[in-house]
Amino acid sequence: MTTTPPVQTMSLTLKALRVHRRGPVLSVQLHEPDQGNLVSDAMLDDLLAVLDSQAPEVRVLVLSGAGQDFSLGGDRSEFAEHLLDDPTGGRLRASGVKGRRVCDALISNPAVTIARVQGRAIGAGFALALACDLRVGTESTTFRLPELTLGLPATWGGLLPRLIQEIGAARVRDIVLTSRPLGATEAQSLSLLQKVVPAEDLDAAVDGLTKAVLRRPAHAYRVTKTLLNSYAAAGRLADATALDPELMAAVAAETHRPTPSTPQGPSTAEPVW
């Protein structure tokens, strides 16, 4: 008879995440539901802390979002604060570097990473889900990249080359240049979602993928993930995403010049990323 491992909590002080581990499965939940799980610097710091301290015994990492939506993207009020504090874009650049580090850590994670995507995944939220190996959504899941609508380049977390590799350049041009949302059916047809299920079956679908991974030898998965990432990197010889934070900061500093009267409270407008 198989016994269920006890739930273990991490000894980290986290502001924007809820994290627990059950044996070889690490569950990481973006936990700012009142703000649509906006990706703030605090959330990025939390994600880096969790990923940096991940136990070697972890074989599956499940990334989810609390509430109705996976993530509505970057924190727009924090974006404005960064530019007000440093009009040259320096603070925004530092935030972008964190975002790139988080996505790289998910992509290169030795565990199999699964994104549990409900509701909307916008901008930076889209990038976090895309950085995972597998993505499961519901019939109401949508993805969107609204950057150009907001006068910004699509440069966050190394998203563009990974998206091009996953679904192809022509499709990416359509999604990025029109800023249109992708519903679950289209997302699955493009392999942005590997599985789409009714909302009430979402956890069961994630559990099914988790159990499938755990039934197979751990060392085979580690080697295979390394090979997949290596082959992917070989196809991106012109990958210039290390410049993403510089490009974002440069464009934002030029086109989004805040004034002291810029509102600094929580924004109900469209997310930045």
Rank of each mutant, 00 (worst) to 15 (best):
M1Y: 08
T2D: 10
T4P: 11
P6V: 07
V7Y: 09
V7G: 07
L12T: 09
T13K: 12
L14M: 03
L14Q: 02
A16L: 04
L17P: 02
V19E: 05
V19Q: 02
G23A: 05
P24H: 00
L26M: 08
G36I: 03
G36V: 01
V39I: 11
D41Q: 13
A42I: 10
L44N: 05
L51Q: 03
S53W: 12
Q54D: 07
P56S: 15
R59G: 03
V60S: 03
V62F: 01
L63M: 02
S64C: 05
A66Y: 07
G67Q: 05
D69N: 09
D69Q: 03
G74I: 05
D75Q: 10
D85R: 15
D86I: 04
P87W: 01
G90C: 09
L92A: 01
R93E: 01
R93Q: 10
A94I: 03
A94N: 08
S95D: 13
R100D: 01
R101L: 05
C103L: 09
A105W: 04
A111V: 02
V117R: 00
G119T: 02
A121Y: 01
I122L: 02
G123F: 01
A131Q: 01
A131N: 01
R135V: 05
S140M: 13
P146G: 00
E147M: 13
T149I: 12
T155L: 08
G157R: 00
R162I: 03
R162A: 05
R162Q: 08
I164R: 14
I164H: 11
I164A: 12
V172N: 03
V172F: 06
I175Q: 00
L177Q: 15
P181F: 05
G183F: 02
G183Q: 00
E186N: 10
A187V: 07
A187D: 01
Q188K: 15
L190M: 09
L193W: 04
K195Y: 10
K195V: 14
A199N: 10
A204N: 11
A205P: 04
G208N: 10
L209S: 06
K211Y: 00
V213R: 02
L214T: 04
R215C: 11
H219D: 15
N229D: 09
A234E: 13
A242Y: 10
L243H: 13
L243T: 13
P245D: 00
P245M: 05
L247S: 13
E254Y: 11
H256V: 05
R257I: 12
Q264I: 07
G265S: 10
P266N: 13
T268D: 10
T268H: 12
T268M: 11
E270K: 15
E270S: 15
V272Q: 08
V272T: 15
